[in-house]
């Protein structure tokens, strides 16, 4: 680092500068890291559940109703009569919304701090490999996933034209899915987004384990395996669905 002005007070005490890079921030980095770890793991659990639920695409229809449509109706009615209709669903949505806002805030705040701490000479000649690449591209994969989430909500939750298929009908989950994935460009968007999800999730799970203070050899090993297994299962499951529709295997 090159200093703008000589810090005479510091030089008198044998240092170059006493000026810290930043004043202590309102929300410390370690708190942001914990928030990101917990919200990130929450999303990891969510995508596993989301994929498992959607696999009902392949179950046969019972009594005239598609299994996937029944599952969709269940999501709206679950928790009744303790919660009102769609009550539990909205609680989950609210938690996810708060979590994603906190996660995004943490990501940008920490990135800004680390850029300032590193200074103008960026690190080069990194070790390389998949882990290093996933680590380096966290912000990019995260932004792509955010855009994908918006796209996905407009497509299959809200049914907003022209992103959603023309004959979108609320509650007809399976029909909507088939209609949307029958369009090849949309299928390709989903498949590419899942590759980004794999990268984001594989590093995210590893990092969350570290930030939550897991240092024991066995637990660390367990999380290292989970960090590949969970993203792989989620991504393969989520890629098979649009592809099987696009290839006409589901009707």
């Amino acid at each position: 680092m090159t200093l703008r002005n000589p810090d005479r007070e510091a030089v008198a005490h044998g240092h170059i500068t006493n000026e810290p890079i930043r004043q202590k921030p309102g929300v410390p980095s370690w708190v942001l890291k914990l928030i990101m770890a917990v919200t990130g793991l929450l999303f990891a659990l969510f995508v596993v559940g989301h994929m498992a639920g959607n696999l009902k695409l392949y179950l046969p229809a019972e009594g005239g109703d598609e299994a996937l449509d029944e599952y969709g109706a269940f999501l709206r009615s679950m928790g009744e009569p303790l919660f009102p209709h769609e009550g539990a669903l909205w609680i989950i949505r609210a938690v996810l919304l708060v979590a994603i806002i906190a996660h995004i805030y943490g990501a940008f705040a920490l990135t800004a701090r680390s850029k300032a701490s590193r200074g103008k000479f960026r690190r080069s000649n990194l070790m390389g490999g998949l882990d290093s690449f996933a680590t380096k591209s966290m912000l990019v994969t995260g932004i792509v996933l955010l855009l994908f989430i918006i796209f996905h909500l407009l497509d299959l939750t809200l049914g907003v034209q022209p992103i959603a298929p023309g004959d979108f009908a609320e509650g007809a989950v399976k029909a909507n899915m088939i209609a949307t994935f029958s369009r090849w460009p949309v299928t390709i968007v989903y498949v590419i987004a899942m590759c980004f999800l794999f990268l984001h999730l594989t590093h995210g799970i590893r990092l969350a384990a570290s930030d939550l203070g897991i240092t024991g050899a066995k637990w660390r090993q367990t999380f290292l395996i989970l960090a590949y297994v969970i993203p792989a299962v989620v991504c393969i499951g989520n890629i098979v669905m649009p592809l099987s529709v696009a290839l006409g295997l589901v009707s």
């Binding site: 810290p20 890079i21 930043r22 004043q23 202590k24 921030p25 410390p28 980095s29 370690w30 942001l32 890291k33 920490l110 701090r113 680390s114 850029k115 300032a116 701490s117 590193r118 690190r123 990194l126 070790m127 882990d131 290093s132 680590t135 380096k136 966290m138 590093h203 590893r206 990092l207 570290s210 930030d211």
Partner: peptide
Amino acid sequence: MVDDLEANFGHCSLYGECAD
């Protein structure tokens, strides 16, 4: 010690370069 880190240093992304 950790509160003092905030003033000058960044956060850990688990690149693993440090231990290497």
